[in-house]
Write a protein that binds this DNA or RNA. Sequence first.
DNA 1: TGAATATATGAACAAGTACTCATATATTCA
DNA 2: TGAATATATGAGTACTTGTTCATATATTCA
Lengths: 122, 122
Amino acid sequence: MESNHVNGNCCDDQYHPSAPEKTADLPPLDEEEAIELADLYKLFADSTRLRIIIALLGVEMCVIHLAERIGMSQSAVSHQLRQLRQARLVRCRREGQLAYYSLMDEHVSSMIQLGLEHIREE
Amino acid sequence: MESNHVNGNCCDDQYHPSAPEKTADLPPLDEEEAIELADLYKLFADSTRLRIIIALLGVEMCVIHLAERIGMSQSAVSHQLRQLRQARLVRCRREGQLAYYSLMDEHVSSMIQLGLEHIREE
DNA sequence: TGAATATATGAACAAGTACTCATATATTCA
DNA sequence: TGAATATATGAGTACTTGTTCATATATTCA
């Protein structure tokens, strides 16, 4: 009934040669932080939100214009913007009737960039 | 009924000052590519898969050991490994009864790294 | 003030998904 | 060959989530 592996003589300390240099600078993750990190990636894990983010790269845009640009309803875009706003991935600047949205920082575009590199490589 | 925004005189070409240099090197995304990119991020958008990936940083590990490490059932881990395998984020090397898993390339750890930086900044 | 426009949001519904359970496949060893 | 171990996977279920629809809030302008 007991697995051989609890004795720790199966996979421990078998470093994989392909990415050894990446190991040291990544501290281990507890479950709470894993959930927090997953929640961040969830925001990028929807094509509508991705297209909103990409539309906002370098520019700020109001909701209606954003909705027209990506071909979704105003309501759908507004719901998604709320999530991005609450996660502080975008900021909102109101001017009269309009709400201008823009990206919060460069981490966002860096993550998009890295993801794009990955899918375009293969 | 018609919005003012279709005339294009609302938000166009209003570059946002915070990240202007990031704009040029990111080509626009069509919907198909947005979906592909979202599918990639979906793989990182689950804490169990994240903990599997992080457990595999720099090392290769068999399924049972992986399951013990992150405190999930063998079945749950195997199901998630299948997704990671099909997306080519991990590779599998069989040796006897054991299946040793390791990360496919450095893009994976780079994306984890970037995400961690983001959540640890605020 | 009242109409028009822009945005936000609650409710409901449909689609996706991560887990468990049971079981199949595969390998080792007696 | 048969038992034990490791892994994979289909079915079922509970939960999450993205959309639509209706409506609320807010601002501008006549």
